[in-house]
Every structure is written in C-alpha cells, then in structure tokens.
C-alpha cells in the first residue's frame, strides 16, 4: 500500500493511520487504522463524541504528532519522510490552525495576530498589512484591527483565529472544535464564515465538532468512534 502515493488533488490522505498511547493503565488506541482522503476544496466536518480521536487525527494531519502506524500524506508527500524543520515549514506555509479557544497571542493586536504567520514567512510589511486587513474585513472585523484579544468576544476571537489561519493562503485549514466555547448562534455564524471562505478561496477545511447542528450542515461528514471511521454514516459530498 505504501508505494501508492496519492494523486496531487488529494490534499490529505491517511493510510492505515494508527496512534496508540502507552499509559500506565494500558494501551489507548486513540486512532486505530484510519483510511481517508480529503480533496482539494472540500469542507469536511469531523464528528464524533469526546474521546473518539478527533484531536488525535487533526494533530496527525497537521504534523504536530506522528502516527504509531500507517502514513499521513499532505499534497502527496509522506510526512514520515520529512525532517523536523521541513514539518515546521509545512505547518507554517501549507496549513492553517484554529484551536478550541484562547489561541491568539494576547499581547498582539488583532491585526498583528493575523500578520504573525506572514511575518514568519517573510512576507513584506505592506503586503502583510493589506492581506490581513482584507481578510479581517471579509470576516466583519474591520473595526477591531487595533484591539487586543481580551477586548473581543469569544466569537470575534475565533474569527480572528480563522483569519490568521487562512490569511497566508494555506492548502489546508484544520479547525479543532472551534465552536466548542461558543453559543449556538455564534457557532453557526462562525461556521458560515468558514464555509464562505471555503467557497470564495477554495481553501480545504477539516473542522471537528460534536455539535449536531453543525454536522447537519456538512457536505462531507466524517464520523469517528473509538478511533475508527464510522463508514455507515458518512455523508456523500
């Protein structure tokens, strides 16, 4: 199987991916043999109860963690073949992250937070400003450029996080339960915003949630249970 490198339009591919943790209580099979392909431009919702392995899977895809078995491919490249530096560069250049909460840098303003990754990439200042402002405007945050994260509501903070994740035009955005700390109305609005970005920029999204309302709106639903795909219920997209 390992010789079958996935075609380029497959942004993410998991082949027999395992992630087992050895704990004093025994082996935890957080991810237990997952085969999955995500195509360029898809908006995939990763669903499953708490502890089903959603974060584990997103961490593997985001090159933050390594599988104990199987392989993860990004843009057709096997992550296990890459050096630490290459993985850091991959995260910086190809992947955008949105985490559950409090994932903005508190001492930076909204604009600076969004510019930060571009700064790491060495994007010139003028371009940084212009791109960050444009994406913040797209997310309805044009009036908050110079605010600090603490001055924003939870929903606004997550919008800034989404702006930061997409601003450098990554191939893939990974959002791990971005609405977990938001009320249902704000959650739906954030989801709409991400879906709109998916449409207008053709950015691939994988977004985990355990909110049934959000699952219902997914064009592609990936269900996880006990570290395995729940194939019967996967919607077609």
């Amino acid at each position: 199987m390992a010789d079958q490198t996935p075609p380029k339009e497959i942004v993410v591919a998991l082949k027999g991916a395992h992630r087992h943790y050895t704990t004093p209580a025994g082996v935890v099979r957080a991810l237990d043999g997952v085969d999955l392909e995500i195509r360029q431009g898809e908006f995939a919702v990763l669903a499953g109860p708490s502890g089903s392995g959603k974060s584990t899977m997103l961490n593997l895809i985001g090159a933050l963690d390594q599988p104990t078995g199987g392989e993860v491919y990004i843009d057709g490249v096997a992550l296990s073949s890459q050096s630490k530096q290459a993985l850091a560069a991959l995260r910086r250049d190809r992947i955008g992250f949105v985490f559950q909460s409090y994932n903005l840098i508190p001492v930076l303003t909204v604009l600076e937070n969004v510019e930060y990754v571009m700064l790491l990439q060495g994007v010139p200042e003028a371009t940084r400003h212009q791109r960050a402002k444009a994406i913040l405007a797209e997310l309805g945050l044009e009036g908050m450029l110079n605010r600090r994260p603490v001055e924003l509501s939870g929903g606004q903070q997550q919008r800034v996080a989404v702006a930061r994740a997409v601003v450098s035009k990554p191939a893939l955005v990974l959002a791990d339960e971005p609405t977990a700390n938001l009320d249902s109305q704000t959650s739906a609005a954030l989801m709409d915003a991400m879906m709109a970005l998916n449409q207008t920029h053709a950015t691939t999204f994988i977004c985990s949630t355990h909110d049934p309302d959000l699952m219902a709106r997914a064009s592609r639903l990936i269900k996880l249970r006990d570290g395995k795909l729940d194939d019967r219920e996967e919607a077609q997209g």
Binding site: A88, A89, R91, F99, L120
Partner: peptide, 16 residues
Amino acid sequence: FKEFGILKAIGTTPAR
C-alpha cells in the same frame, strides 16, 4: 506553556 505551544504549532521555530 499553551501560548508557546500555539506559537510553535503555527510555525514558530525553536530558534525564533
């Protein structure tokens, strides 16, 4: 601790 983790996750190198 968490903030440093996020900085690293989004591509900040240990040197930086």
